[in-house]
Nucleic acid binder design. Structure first.
Lengths: 333, 333
DNA sequence: GCCTCTTGAGTAATCGTTTACGTAATCGAT
DNA sequence: ATCGATTACGTAAACGATTACTCAAGAGGC
């Protein structure tokens, strides 16, 4: 690979001049510039981003750490980030890391991408690395939390009102006359999930019902586990007449469990879920759900981070709360 | 941020020694090492990956360029790559780029990630950058094609036998007695899609039928476009009694179109699709489909690339062909 | 004819590592 | 006492850019 020195030699100028035509950073006489440009083309020179980063202490890469890109919520969010960064005209790239809700994995990813000197970080924390992140933030390293926040760490964040949305969803079930409402809860160390449980309890309480611990089933956050959790919900005696799924994997597992038990929804049991699916309207059962603005969350996160990086915003961290959408379909009866 | 020099000073040794304890690259007396380690801890020193990359000319990042991470096929594939790289014990990170089938976007991404000096590239080409990629490969830059290949560019690749799989899928429709079989084709510049069309024609021909051009509807590769394409299929006169969808977005759009027209599947029209869905068993209609081993494709691509990077394999490019799985469900009648 | 400004471009330090060479010190063997 | 090996570590040159200084030459003012 040709270096800037090769270009300089070929064009009969100094490396400084080449650098300046490359970056348009000072006046270069037209004929000189032309020679440089010709040499660049001739040698098929591409500047070395690594050397450049070292010098400028800025890499043009951003770390995105989420739990699972296979979750449509996150892939949508990721697209939001990517499109927004591109739209801002930055030549930034994203390093994507999936933690699978594993704090150790998250920690390891944090270590290596910090070593790679990413310019900033967009993060849906798995929990368990509060100290590390706290240290980052204290060092003024640009971090934006998305979907989840960490009470111990004050940084920019973009979230939705999980509690309120869950409350609305469960109230809807109550309005439809359901009383024995189970909850299939994903066991994540995510405050978002905790808020959803609170919303569930709020709604029950408001209806004069107590949250019966027997009606709560915990499950790891993947479809297979949720399927087993779903079976457990259905095996409760007496069977609940409705179930609230705290995220989309729970919903998917629950639907599979219904199918496995030969039960139909909403006839045998009603169901509402947090998170919508891209194909929600085409397939049956049609799930009543709260849709999060996942793409916009990614977009907002990118904007927050960008503003920090460009120093367009300094000072205390801010929280962007985006609205959810309640989508009433068939599954709620 | 502390540098290696700071550490050296604090420990009272040279930078070389610090570097050597960092990399375990030569013997350092236990007491000396201890002082260095202490200084590292004291200063919370983290080595600068950028400087390191510059010196070693190796960045520990790999570019992954696909069309759309929201496509479950690609998110699964991505996970396969990521898990495999991690499993290999490399501290590699992945830069993920979504081209949305846009050659210009792909080109731009190629430019910036090559400038970032990624160590290698895993790519599902959108088409249109053959020359550029050809040049890369000629320069011995490690590239692995996945899902799609470019006839003009010989590089390592991992694919499935699209033609054979499509043939099997359509033969299945023929076996079920369907004769008027439409095809909803994604307009991608991807050889994989072309092979699927050929498989469709093969099957028809083998049954003594001609591929009627009227039965083919082309659509951009996203759900909304596929929905409109699906409506067009349904509006054919006479209506086809079956339809073959060339990828998962086509299937999703087709199902929505059926729903919009109040038609049911397979009663009114049968349907088979290329690509499976994670939730295929839980929701109705249950789609008969060919499942690609997307995760394994990512895994194989990662292995191929890794072997090149570690020079465990040199010489001519190889092609890994992975088997597909035919999943007969309800939608084929 | 001397001085100052402007124009255009070169010199060399610097970013933070890695690593090819060197070298001082210790030791056992002769 | 001298010598080669061995042990332990330091010196300084890369890696390929960016950029603060510097400077020569020509223009213009007096």
């Amino acid at each position: 690979m040709a270096t800037i020195r090769d270009v300089a030699t070929m064009a009969g100028v100094s490396v400084a001049t080449v650098s300046h035509v490359l970056n348009d950073s000072r006046y270069v006489a037209p004929e000189t510039k032309e020679r440089v440009v010709a040499a660049i083309a001739e040698l098929d020179y591409r500047r070395d981003g690594i050397a450049r980063s070292l010098r400028r202490s800025e890499t043009g890469t951003i770390g995105v750490i989420i739990s699972d890109i296979k979750n449509p919520f996150f892939s949508d969010l990721y697209k939001g980030v990517e499109d927004t960064i591109n739209g801002l005209g930055e030549n930034q790239n994203l390093i994507l890391c999936n933690t699978e809700e594993d704090a150790d994995k998250e920690r390891k990813y944090l270590d290596v991408i910090m070593e790679k000197r990413v310019d900033g970080l967009i993060l849906a924390p798995a929990g368990g690395n509060e100290d590390y992140l706290q240290a980052l933030v204290k060092r003024q390293f640009p971090v934006v939390f998305v979907d989840r926040s960490l009470s111990a760490v004050r940084a920019d964040q973009v979230v939705v009102d999980n509690r309120q949305a869950a409350r609305e969803l469960v109230r809807h079930l109550l309005d439809r006359g359901h009383r024995r409402i189970a909850i299939l809860k994903a066991t994540l160390h995510a405050d978002s999930i905790d808020r959803r449980v609170e919303g569930y309890e709020d709604a029950l309480r408001a209806a004069g019902l107590a949250a019966d611990p027997c009606l709560r089933v915990d499950s790891a956050s993947d479809i297979d586990a949720a399927y087993r959790g779903g079976l457990a919900v259905l095996d409760l005696d007496p069977r609940p007449d409705a179930v609230f799924c705290t995220n989309n994997f729970m919903t998917l597992g629950m639907v599979r469990a219904l199918d496995a038990r030969g039960l139909s929804c909403p006839a045998d049991i009603a169901l509402v879920g947090f998170d919508d699916f891209p194909w929600a309207d085409s397939f049956r059962p049609r799930i009543t759900a709260v849709a999060q603005p996942s793409y916009e969350m990614g977009r907002e996160a990118a904007l927050l981070l960008h503003a920090r990086l460009r120093k367009q915003r300094t000072g205390p961290p801010i929280t962007v709360t985006l609205p959810t959408t309640m989508l009433v379909r068939d599954s709620s009866g």
